[in-house]
Structure formats: structure tokens, C-alpha cells
Design a protein around this nucleic acid. Structure first.
Length: 972
DNA sequence: GATTCGGGAATTTTT
DNA sequence: TTCCCGAATC
């Protein structure tokens, strides 16, 4: 008992051990939700003597399911853990349908239609009927209805206006086509399972407990399914957080929380309130954002960490600049943190996967290893999909979608027209597409479709591939089924290698390695031990008097394919004993849910991206940003290019420009003094960096500061010089100066402020300028030369060795002088720019800030103090007022930086606040926290596989984003 | 007449 | 990458 409960706080413990039959655990991000749920499962088994195979646990993503499985394994051991029915709603539903589907007239080998199948079907219906509906809209509408449990017949009866009737037609034809191909779409899996459990409650008569993760994301059908799973004993535990509801587009119903209370009036609700993940500064900022939603009930959120480093909100000239800044910050943080941070500690969270382009390119340029999660999935990559489609058809030839998709891949001179004719013929003859072409090629059917000789040959070669595949399976039935052999057969028969070589030329290797990856996975799945485990895991407990169809080894292909359809991520298993690959993660915010990283970047924070222009639920977009922000443990970066990818001016996301938000952010990356590096390590519960390791890390750094890109989002001088040559005068009149080297010149802020009134930076607090001035001056005068000197030395050194990352080195800067001039203009040189800069009013007050600090320090801290505690009745950690700073600012640069960055706690705290400080953080450190293990839990792109298999072709993380396809474009 | 090929445009989030 | 269009090609 103690073992299991060890390390839980009071509320978590209460939730885990609760006697309540129906239990809701509501919990903010980072409060150990999933941990609580997992522990409860273990507790139910160990102390309530529930049988693992009678417990159903549903998650929303495969990833979450795997995480939980992993954790359970360490809790109750491999044996027990694998017997728990744990998976996504869809996976569990599919399991029930495979085993009991015959009771509702479902064929055993039903296929699962993925989105592209569904789209293709709808598209065809619309074309055939000459309708005006748009495919994605129709699909969404179909899904919306299905999620609410409305079937096509029902809808047709209530359809009134033309629009509804047209949709009713699409809906019912869509259903008919699925049926004809023996396919279930994602919604069908849930719906049919509901139907099964309603009509045959015996199927779940064994179920003792049902647990649901991320309950706020359930839709109506999933809710029903949950209730049906639990119908015998009504033992339900859910965990969730309405603030993290980001699946409205998938018809999630937050109402389900209340519905549950209505349905089971004795539902017990337990709130978890303590956040163990993020630094106080990050929580404050995130809280400020989520509280903009006024319809939202107030909630407690208690930070357990120190305030830490303030989040960063950075402006940059363009998406490309943003990407390159981001990559340089990753490098800088790795170096400046005294070895506390490494690549795998960073994640880049995107609103949409398409935003990854520039970032992948920038990472590639600097040779930073990365992997992409979400976005294009492994099994949807064209070359993989081809093979998978062949397998689908071999497994189940009635899968007409797949047939149509690849009958002409590689080209067999079977074009759209032929396909269309076949399709129509098949439907008039009442047979499937496959049956038709099979008959035609064997001269058993006289086709009405006229075929040229070449096409006819193409058809029979296609049929041949499928038939030999099927033969292979039936032969293998008595011996060993080998998926790998099957794949090899397909690959050979269609000569996939030549096809890929032709089509992708220089990308061929990467493509082919994806196919190899698929084979590796197939090999993995057909390993006898693994196969046995798979079949076992896939089986439900037997129930007396209920006929069950069991999976045999001949079903390995079915199971393999079903797994593919229900898998968002193909995890590449880490080779045992191998060093985990250190790589940065790129992910969509949606896919990052439930996970955490030490450092989080959220780029492209502008209107249209987040909130997304296509979204109609502003609150959900805000929650999405909140989810993104709260993934961060120690450091959060948000950024906004002032021009988007189309070079259009952007407006910063309104969530970040609301009054009260901006002062939670720093305008540039942290200075990362050794003190800050130590505090970072504390938040992460890692070993403190030593002075030696800190200095060591900095050695090879090009710049110790986030100072290359001007804070106002303009181009840095060098880049401007490139682009604006000859147009400089315009800029002088419009912006004050073309040389807006705001990053270092002591006076640049003056200019920025003037500019601020006419640009987005108007939200900037004027007083903040002086702080920045001081910052700049310190840099300029005290530290700068030393830094540069060291850098120049380092540079000389590294020049001798092979220089890495030369992207920002400036041409003709062989001399150190050139380096100084261009990279870090010393303050005295910057003065000459003043003339162009105009009024210097503000500047006069602190022309010598080093001597006269008190003059420029505002009486009250301008911006760094959160306006209010997160909640009035909770103990909060605050930053110290800056006013203490002058005295705290001795001549040693280090402490000066410390104070400027305003992140570490100040002596004031001790007097004013009951401080949950280091001591408490250390207490918290005793609590074992959910540790995310990126390398083993994530989908890995082929880029990783490229790295793991030493590449034959010498291109690792190449100079271009080789996998996202955009590379095609730049290829001539 | 059908197929292929090239160029240009658009691309939310997930099971 | 996919989709669409129109022109070149079989």
C-alpha cells in the first residue's frame, strides 16, 4: 500500500483510494492527473483485488496509452500490466468488434477507413451526383452527426431544406459505400461498439472498473461507450480539465462532466490544485491567458516551484528569422546552462504542422537533430502508404478505396477514365471493384469497359500482384506468416525502388528508408513471441455462454493493419543499450497534450495562426495556447514574426496583447547567469551546474546574448544592408534609421519607443525602456568587450578546427575588428547613429547609466510583477520588486544581469511572503514526478531512422528539410 | 481519347 | 503533399 501511495500528495491520495463508485478528478496542467489515474488502477488491483483484465482504461491518443502502460508496468509488473484493457477508445472498440462483431452481423475482417478513404468516397459521391458541397465540410458534418449518434436514415427523415436533403443524400450514400467495402470509419468503430454493448450487455459483464483519461475530450458517443462499458457495476473514474479541452472540432462535449453528475448523482469530485511541473513565472503567464475567458469558473492553481525565469515573448522580422533565432536560442541555452539542458529538453510547439517548414530548414542548416511529431504521420507518407495499401487489398480485396488509389501506382496506364468506368460497371453489376477487375483480367467477365492493350496488361499485372500476395498468405498459414516476406513480395513486384528513384531522385534514400522502417516494424510484429503477445493482448476475457471469435496467427495481417489505422505514431523502439538520440522535438500543440519539456517554444503567435483563421471557437484557441504554455517546466519562449510566411504584416495574437499579459514576458531570451542556470536546474530537479561546467559550456558560443535580432522585430543591420541598399533614405524618414541596432546601442530604446506608437509595439510599457537601456548599456560597456574578446579567441580556435554553424558569420570579417564592428557594435560607435535617430529626450536622463542608476530606475517596478496572485487565497510566489536592484547591483556584471533579468528571487521575498522557496521546491523534489521520456514514446520521423541506421548516403540532418516534401519544390 | 506531365495554388487540430 | 488545370504525348 505504502509503495503505491508513496509520493502522492493529499488530494492525489484521496483520489486514488476513494471508495466512491463514480469519481471525477479535476486537475489543472502538471498536477499529476495521469499519475493519479495510473496509481488508482494499480490500487484497485492491489487493494481491491480487481482483476486487471476486468479493468478498462481509455485514453485519447495512442501515445497516452503507451505512457500509461509504461508506468503501470513499473508499478505492478509486466505480467499484470499487459492484461489490463488499456488503449484508445477506438482501439478498444475495435477489439470488441473483432471479437463479438458477428453478433451484430459484422464481418470479421472489416477494414478501417482512414480519413483519406472517407474523403475519397465523399468526393466521388459529390462528383457523381453533381453536388456543390465541399468534401471536408461534408465529412465534418457526417462525423458530427455520427458523434452525436445520429444515423443517416434518421437524418434523412428530418431533413427539410434543400441543403439538408443534399447532405442526407451524401450521408446515406457514404454509409452505403463503406458498407459495400466492408469498412468502418473511426466513428463507426465507436458507434457499432455502442450498439453491440447495448444489444449484448454480456460482452462487458466482466468489467469491474472503467477509467477515462482526458475526459473533457469525450464526445457523446464516447460518453455512451464509457457508460456501456461500466453498465454492470458502474465503477467509473475519470480525470480531466475543462481548461484543456481542445478537441471541440472533434465534437468533444465539456457538458459530459455535468451529464455524468446527473446520471450518477453520487459522483464524487476531487480537485487537484498543485502544479509540480512549471516554474511560477510560466504559470502566472499561462494563468493570465486562460483567465481571459470570462465564462470560465475560477480555479485554484498552486505553484510549487520557485518563480524561475520569466517567459519570453519575442518579435522577429519574418518566419525565417524566427526560425533561425529559435535555433540559435536553443544553441545558446544548451551552452549557457552549464550542461543542464540538452537538445532533447526542447520542444517547438506549433498550431499547425505546416508551420514547421522554416524551422526544419533552420534546424537542418545548423545540424541540430530533430524529430517531428504530429503533422504527416509515418503511415501517411506516400511511399509507406503505397505499400500499406497493397497490404490492405491483399488482406481484404473489397477495400475499393485502396484499390482505386494504387491501381495505377506505379503507372500501369490505367487513368482516371478507366477507373471511373470500372467503378460504374462494378456498381451496376453489383460486385466490388476488385471482383470486376479480377474477373476481367481472367477473362471471366466480359467488361463493358473498352481497354487498350497497354491498359489491359496493366490491369492484369495489378491483379497478379494482389493474387500472389494472397497466395503467399494462404501458403504461409500452416507455416509461419511473414509480413516481411509479404512486403518484400509487393515491393519487388511493383519495383518500388525504381518507382521511388524516378519520382523523388535525390530524396530517394530518405523515402526508401521509410519503406525499410515499415519492414522493420513488420518484422517486429511477426516475431513469434511478439505475435503471441499481440494476439493475447488483443483478446478479451472469455465469457460463459457468449460466442467469441478468436484471432489466430492468420490474422496477423489484419491486426497489423488495424494497428496502423489506429496509430498516430509509429514508435521506433530504441535499440537496447543504445545511447538515446539527443534531438529537439517539433510537435503540434494538440499532440503535445499531457506531455512536458524543460524548454518550450511556441512560434507564430499571430492572429490567424493562433487563434487560427479557420477556427470559430476563440475560447478553444485560447485554451490551446494555454495547453502549449503549460507544457513548459522551466523556460517558455513565444514569438511572433512581424511578417508571416506570405510576407503579410501580422498582428500579434490577441491573447498576448490583452492588458496585463505583456508584463509577464521578457522581450528577449534570458541572460542565463550561473545563478539562473542553477535555478533552472532546481526547477528541473537536476544536478546543479558547477562554475566550471558553466564556463566550459559558454566557451564556444558565438554570442552569449539574445541580441542579434532587434527587439522590435526589424531586420538586423547586416540583413537590412543587404536588402535596403539604395533605399536607406526612405527608412530614415519612416523609421528614424536604417541602422536600428537596438540590441546593443545604449540609445536604441529611444528610437523604439518613438516607433512603438505607430507599430504593434505600442503595448510596450514606456518605463520598460529604461530597464532595457540599462541592460543594453551594461552589455555595451562593461561586458561586451570581454565577451567579444573571448569570442574572438574562441573563434580563432574554432576556425582552426572545423567550424560548425557558420551561418551568421559575416563575409570579410577575417579581422577581429570587423567582427566587433558588425556583430557587437560598441557603444561609442553606436553614438554616431544617434544623429539620425532624432529626439533623445529619454536618453538624456541616463546618458551614463552606470554611474547614475537611480535616475533611470522607476520608483515602482514597471512590469515584472504579476498584478495579482493567481488566486487571492493561495500562497503565491512573486518576483521581487526591481527597486531593490540598484543596491544589489554591484560592479560585477553577473549579479547585474541577474537583477535585470528579474527572474531570481529577491531578498524582499523573505520579508513579505510566506515563500514556498527552495526549501519547498526541494520537498517537492521528493515527489517522483511523471517524467516524459521523449525518445522512447514518440513517433520518430525517418530522419531519426536515418540517424540510427548509419546513413549510406552521407546526408544526415541535411541542409534542407528532406522529409517534408517541400524540398521537392526547390529542386529543379 | 486517354494518359502523363508541368506548373501553380493551398494546406487546422486527431482517432 | 495534394489538387487542379491545360498542354504535350501515346
Amino acid at each position: 500500500m505504502d509503495d503505491i501511495l508513496h509520493g502522492l500528495n493529499k488530494a492525489q491520495r484521496e483520489a486514488v483510494t476513494s471508495e466512491a463508485s463514480v469519481l471525477q478528478v479535476l486537475a489543472p496542467p502538471g498536477s499529476g492527473k495521469t499519475k493519479t489515474l495510473t496509481t488508482r488502477v494499480a490500487y484497485l488491483i492491489a487493494h481491491r483485488h480487481l482483476k486487471p483484465w476486468n479493468i478498462i482504461t481509455c485514453t485519447f491518443t495512442k501515445k497516452a496509452a503507451n505512457e500509461m502502460k509504461e508506468r503501470l508496468r513499473s508499478f505492478i509488473g509486466e505480467e499484470l500490466a499487459k492484461q489490463i484493457k488499456l488503449g484508445t477508445f477506438h482501439a478498444i472498440a475495435a477489439q470488441y468488434l473483432r471479437q463479438y462483431g458477428q453478433h451484430i452481423g459484422l464481418a470479421k475482417d472489416f477494414g478501417i477507413a482512414d480519413t483519406s478513404d472517407s474523403k475519397a468516397i465523399i468526393k466521388r459521391i459529390i462528383k457523381r451526383r453533381d453536388l456543390t458541397s465541399e468534401v471536408p465540410k461534408a465529412l465534418g458534418r457526417i462525423s458530427a452527426n455520427k458523434c452525436k449518434g445520429i444515423e443517416s436514415g434518421q437524418f434523412a427523415q428530418t431533413a427539410k431544406n434543400v441543403d439538408q436533403q443534399e447532405f442526407a443524400l451524401i450521408f446515406s450514400e457514404y454509409e452505403a459505400e463503406l458498407m459495400a467495402s466492408n469498412l468502418l470509419d473511426y466513428d463507426d468503430l465507436l458507434l457499432r461498439c455502442c450498439f453491440l454493448l447495448r444489444t449484448h450487455p454480456q460482452c462487458v459483464s466482466n468489467v469491474q472498473a472503467v477509467l477515462i483519461d482526458e475526459f473533457q475530450d469525450t464526445n457523446t458517443v464516447q460518453y455512451d461507450l464509457m457508460a456501456l462499458f461500466a453498465q454492470k457495476r458502474n465503477m467509473i473514474t475519470i480525470v480531466g480539465d475543462p481548461d484543456q479541452s481542445i478537441y471541440g472540432f472533434r465534437h468533444a462535449e465539456i457538458k459530459n462532466l455535468n451529464l455524468m453528475k446527473d446520471q450518477w448523482p453520487d459522483t464524487l469530485t476531487i480537485n487537484l490544485e498543485e502544479n509540480y511541473r512549471s516554474s511560477g513565472a510560466i504559470l502566472h503567464a499561462a494563468q493570465e491567458v486562460i483567465e481571459q475567458d470570462e465564462s470560465r469558473p475560477q480555479k485554484k492553481l498552486q505553484a510549487t516551484h520557485t518563480y524561475g525565469l520569466r517567459p519570453v515573448l519575442r518579435k522577429l522580422p519574418s518566419a525565417a528569422a524566427e526560425a533561425s533565432w529559435l535555433v540559435s536560442e536553443i544553441g545558446r541555452m544548451c551552452a549557457m546552462s552549464g550542461k543542464v539542458l540538452q537538445h532533447s529538453d526542447f520542444v517547438i510547439l506549433l498550431r499547425s504542422a505546416a508551420l514547421s517548414r522554416e524551422i526544419e530548414a533552420a534546424l537542418g542548416r545548423d545540424g541540430v537533430p530533430y524529430r517531428m511529431v504530429g503533422g504527416k504521420k509515418f503511415f501517411e507518407r506516400a511511399e509507406v502508404k503505397i505499400v500499406v495499401d497493397y497490404l490492405q487489398i491483399i488482406n481484404q480485396p473489397s477495400h475499393s478505396e485502396a484499390v482505386e488509389r494504387i491501381i495505377n501506382v506505379p503507372s500501369r496506364r490505367i487513368g482516371d477514365a478507366t477507373v471511373k468506368s470500372f467503378r460504374e460497371e462494378a456498381s451496376t453489376k453489383g460486385i466490388s471493384f476488385w471482383e470486376l477487375i479480377c474477373g476481367v483480367s481472367q477473362d471471366k467477365i466480359r467488361s463493358t469497359t473498352k481497354l487498350p492493350a497497354a491498359t489491359e496488361k496493366g490491369v492484369s499485372s495489378f491483379v497478379n500482384v494482389i493474387l500472389s500476395g494472397r497466395r503467399k498468405i494462404s501458403e504461409a498459414n500452416d507455416g509461419q506468416t511473414s509480413l516481411v516476406d509479404l512486403i518484400n513480395l509487393v515491393v519487388k513486384k511493383i519495383d518500388l525502388q525504381s518507382y521511388l528513384k524516378n519520382k523523388y531522385e535525390n530524396e530517394y534514400e530518405a523515402r526508401w528508408s521509410n519503406v525499410e522502417e515499415l519492414m522493420a516494424q513488420a518484422a517486429d510484429a511477426s516475431d513469434p513471441a511478439r505475435l503471441k503477445a499481440m494476439v493475447e493482448e488483443d483478446s478479451l476475457p472469455t465469457i460463459d455462454g457468449l460466442e467469441q471469435r478468436t484471432a489466430g496467427s492468420e490474422d496477423i495481417l489484419s491486426i497489423f493493419l488495424a494497428n496502423i489505422a489506429l496509430t498516430s505514431s509509429a514508435e521506433t523502439k530504441q535499440a537496447e543499450g543504445a545511447e538515446p538520440v539527443q534531438q529537439v522535438t517539433i510537435s503540434t500543440i494538440h499532440s503535445a497534450k499531457g506531455l512536458e519539456w524543460p524548454v518550450v517554444f511556441i512560434p507564430a503567435c499571430y492572429e490567424g495562426s493562433i487563434p487560427h483563421s479557420r477556427s470559430d471557437d476563440n475560447d478553444e484557441e485560447r485554451r490551446l495556447l494555454y495547453v502549449g504554455m503549460t507544457r513548459a517546466q522551466a523556460l517558455l519562449y513565444q514569438s511572433c514574426p512581424i511578417k508571416d510566411t506570405q510576407r503579410q504584416e501580422t498582428i500579434m495574437s490577441s491573447y498576448l496583447t490583452q492588458p496585463g499579459v505583456q508584463h509577464h514576458f521578457e522581450e528577449h531570451g534570458p541572460l542565463m547567469s550561473i545563478h539562473e542556470a542553477k535555478s533552472l536546474a532546481t526547477t528541473l530537479r537536476r544536478e546543479q551546474p558547477t562554475t566550471a561546467s558553466y564556463e566550459e559550456g559558454k566557451k564556444d558560443l558565438e554570442s552569449e546574448l539574445d541580441n542579434y535580432w532587434p527587439l522590435n522585430g526589424e531586420q538586423p543591420p547586416e540583413e537590412r544592408a543587404k536588402w535596403d541598399y539604395g533605399k536607406a533614405t526612405n527608412h530614415v524618414t519612416a523609421f528614424g534609421t536604417a541602422r536600428s541596432a537596438s540590441w546593443v546601442a545604449s540609445t536604441s530604446v529611444t528610437m523604439q519607443q518613438q516607433q512603438g506608437f505607430s507599430t504593434a509595439s505600442a503595448t510596450m510599457k514606456p518605463s520598460f525602456g529604461s530597464v532595457k537601456d540599462l541592460y543594453d548599456d551594461l552589455l555595451g560597456q562593461d561586458r561586451l568587450k570581454a565577451i567579444d574578446k573571448k569570442q574572438a579567441e574562441a573563434k580563432n580556435k574554432s576556425d582552426a578546427a572545423a567550424p560548425k554553424g557558420k551561418k551568421r558569420q559575416i563575409e570579410g570579417q577575417g579581422s577581429i575588428a570587423g567582427f566587433f564592428n558588425k556583430r557587437r557594435r560598441p557603444a561609442e560607435e553606436a553614438d554616431e547613429a544617434d544623429e539620425v535617430r532624432g529626439p533623445v529626450g529619454l536618453r538624456s536622463a541616463h546618458s551614463d547609466p552606470l554611474r547614475d542608476v537611480s535616475n533611470i530606475m522607476p520608483a515602482e517596478p514597471p512590469s515584472s510583477l504579476p498584478s495579482k496572485p493567481l488566486l487571492s487565497n493561495s500562497r503565491q510566489i512573486r518576483t521581487a520588486p526591481l527597486r531593490k536592484a540598484p543596491s544589489a547591483r554591484p560592479s560585477q556584471p553577473d549579479s547585474g544581469y541577474m537583477f535585470l533579468s528579474s527572474s531570481p528571487r529577491k531578498p524582499d521575498d523573505a520579508e513579505n511572503e510566506p515563500q514556498p522557496d527552495l526549501d519547498e521546491a526541494e520537498q517537492a523534489a521528493d515527489i517522483p514526478q511523471p517524467q516524459f521520456k521523449p525518445a522512447s514514446t514518440f513517433h520518430t520521423t525517418s530522419l531519426q531512422s536515418l540517424q540510427q541506421k548509419p546513413l549510406a548516403h552521407g546526408r544526415r540532418y541535411g541542409a534542407k528539410p528532406s522529409m517534408n516534401g517541400w524540398a521537392n519544390r526547390s529542386r529543379k
